[in-house]
Write a protein that binds this DNA or RNA. Structure first.
Lengths: 201, 201
DNA sequence: GATTTAACTTATCAGTGTTAATTATACCAG
DNA sequence: CTGGTATAATTAACACTGATAAGTTAAATC
């Protein structure tokens, strides 16, 4: 019964082909400027074939974003966490988050800006990869509190404060590249430093 | 020679009519889902008439955003600033900023998210209203430093840190309404409190 | 070898931003 | 009041868009 499996494999392969063509185009041209026809041309299939694999353009975006979130989560989890210095770990994670956004600005915007615009606020629902990213942040906050580097406070809310900080600076730097920002690295450091300082016990 | 003036007045009137129809539709339906034809239908003119008043759809968005920024600036400037308590003034301004965003979520997104997507990063150029909003923030930071409530530091960079914080929390709350945020007011307060605490001398 | 099933394409629809050509309107000089 | 002119607004059209239904081809099963 290897036939069905082979067919399934082939199907999955085309699915991936569509997906990576879509991401490449979304990133280089912007979601708005990419048509189903362009994606189809890139993989040399007819436009309607895509609809056999994805419900519509939004679902295509959805899948691309899911991959991005997986990448982000992976980037964060790869950081060698030093349990004995939770503050430094948190700082490094914050930096990694922002740098991920700046390294893949289009993907970051697709995930955290474009997607919620086209599907009302999805991407962080229970069990989602987005939620896992947030939980990762919270885990580090928890560790800082446990070791009394941070004062006693609501872990979730603190995670949200941190998230707001890194999300804010990331988007500003991406969206307004011509604004006379202070030196980029110094700014990111200051955002993290300020937030961390403000959370200390 | 009152004819020319009247004609100019009428022209300006129609321009405003187009603009307010556009904003209303942008806000209720979202920029993407509003067509020039819909705007035209709303004001009962032919679609192409709009092009006599605005170069294209992006310029229409541009003008709507400029108005939004003026509103935001006005909202901030109306706050009665208490020179003797620059910290409280700063906190109040921060709150006002976030609340403006939450009160007009679509307008906020149009201005700070959609526009930079359709025109690369415009809106904060020299002399723009956007820049004035940022300068307003900086002026308050400067006052806090001058009165030695904040430690000595780069005013611009500090302003950017503050902006990142309020921008971040505003967008998160708007874009992911279904996420289990902590109580909204408490979260905003904590963002402001944390940032301010982190900047103190 | 016939039949079922899956994969893919063609043709088409209603709607998009935008431009060029055209018509209608309001003004002014004689 | 008339004829001409400038300006405002419209009609028609173009090259696209996302999406669907119907049709076609190729492969696998019996």
């Amino acid at each position: 019964m290897g036939v069905k499996e082979r067919r399934a494999r082939e199907k999955e392969q085309l699915r991936q082909q569509i997906l990576s063509a879509a991401r490449e185009l979304f990133v280089t041209e912007g979601y708005e400027n990419v048509s189903m026809r362009k994606i189809a041309a890139k993989i040399e299939y007819s436009p309607t074939t895509i609809y056999l694999y994805f419900k519509d353009k939004a679902e295509l975006l959805d899948s691309v974003c899911k991959e991005t979130l997986l990448n982000l989560l992976d980037t964060l989890e790869r950081l060698n966490r030093d349990k004995s210095d939770p503050l430094e770990t948190l700082r490094k994670s914050g930096r990694a988050y922002v740098e991920f956004g700046l390294k893949h600005p289009q993907e970051y915007k697709l995930t955290f800006v474009v997607r919620p615009q086209f599907q009302q606020g999805l991407g962080l629902e229970e069990g989602s990869v987005g939620e896992k990213v947030f939980n990762y942040l919270c885990a580090m906050v928890f560790e800082c509190i446990r070791q009394k580097v941070f004062r006693q406070m609501d872990v979730e809310m603190t995670g949200q404060v941190l998230w707001a900080a890194v999300h804010g600076v990331t988007l500003l730097l991406i969206d307004f590249p011509d604004f006379p920002w202070s030196e980029k690295d110094a700014l990111i450091d200051m955002v993290l430093q300020t937030t961390i300082e403000g959370l200390k016990g």
